[in-house]
């Protein structure tokens, strides 16, 4: 398998008045073609910023700097500067957390679908409508012709998220970034959306990035998982390895805090003590050290180097499984 998206040494900072906050720090990540990659981390860990950078959707106050940002051999940084619309929606689709807020309340679903198709595929109005019907059928919305005529408020929450996914996929992008696509939905609908993503991957060979702070959902579908903490990738591995054999104490802490998904015997829920650091306060040492049970004095002095071996990597001085 080859990488569809390669991120190397990416930094993002937001300029807020006189100062600036670094929210993504030295992130390197590869998204494999045809895979589902889960990106997990607490709120504020920089998940959305990281992938918004990949389609140039950050606000003007953001400074992005990277050694490399490549998409299928294309230099994204250059391409986004020259012609962002050749990437956005065309080669990378994106859906957001709240589909209700993502869909334009003033426009019919049919308009919102067809305009994307017409924009990217250079096809006639009737062809765009056909394409819109197909796209709705693909995300398993009942009665596609009826839905085309409806307005967003006339659909259910789950249907709205399906429609948003259909819109993001209508121009056949190779990568779908789903930024917490299920957070606004109830658990049954969450699972249905996850099933939909899996079937899209299987049918179209679509590569998917699933951003979530819910490890349970990620466990249900991801092939690989990257764990972000305070803007850094602290651990990345195959999903199975992450769940059965986490190496970073933060990953383990996340795992013990998941609520059981379904069928499992309820485990005791244990939240991680302390609060995630504010991005402005992290400077020296491991950002997780103040909340970490394995931490030693060294941890707050130096930023742990990334250790990689056996297809996985972690950034920790005292990883789980290493006995001193």
């Amino acid at each position: 398998m080859s990488a569809i998206l390669t991120i190397e040494h990416l930094n993002i900072e937001y300029e807020t008045g006189a100062s600036s906050v670094k929210v993504v720090r030295d992130v390197s990540l590869q998204i494999e073609e045809g895979s589902i990659t889960g990106v997990v981390g607490e709120s504020g860990s920089g998940k959305s910023s990281l992938f918004r950078a990949a389609i140039g959707l950050l606000p003007p106050s953001a400074r992005v700097e990277a050694k490399q940002l490549q998409f299928n051999g294309v230099d994204l940084i250059q391409q986004l500067r020259r012609n962002p619309r050749a990437i956005r929606g065309r080669r990378i689709g994106m859906v957001f957390q709240d589909a209700t807020a993502s869909l334009n309340p003033y426009l019919r679903i049919g308009t919102q679908l067809a305009e994307s198709a017409a924009e990217h595929l250079n096809i006639s109005k009737t062809a765009a409508r056909e394409r819109a019907l197909d796209a709705l059928a693909e995300v398993a919305v009942p009665d596609p012709p009826g839905v085309l005529r409806r307005f967003p408020h006339e659909l259910s929450g789950g249907q709205r998220q399906r429609v948003a996914i259909a819109i993001a996929l209508i121009a056949n992008p190779e990568l779908l970034v789903a930024d917490e696509p299920t957070t606004a939905l109830d658990p049954i609908l969450q699972l249905q959306i996850i099933q939909l993503l899996k079937s899209l991957r299987a049918r179209r060979g679509l590569s998917i990035v699933l951003i979530s702070h819910d490890l349970g959902l990620v466990a249900a579908c991801a092939d690989r998982v990257a764990v972000l903490y305070a803007g850094r990738v602290v651990e990345e591995a195959d999903a199975r390895a992450i769940f059965t054999n986490p190496r970073h104490p933060y990953t383990r802490a996340l795992l013990t805090s998941i609520a059981p998904l379904r069928g499992e015997r309820p485990r005791r829920l244990c939240a991680i003590d302390g609060h995630p650091p504010s991005p402005a306060s992290v400077d020296a040492g491991c950002a997780f050290a103040p909340r970490c049970s394995n931490a030693t004095d060294e941890c707050s002095l130096q930023i742990p180097v990334v250790e990689s071996s056996g297809g996985r990597r972690h950034a920790c001085l005292h990883p789980i499984g290493d006995r001193p």
């Binding site: 389609i55 962002p84 619309r85 929606g89 957001f96 869909l103 994307s116």
Partner: peptide
């Protein structure tokens, strides 16, 4: 959000 989404669509 729906303007962000419209941007993400590449309009």
């Amino acid at each position: 959000d729906y303007i962000q989404f419209a941007r993400a669509k590449g309009l």
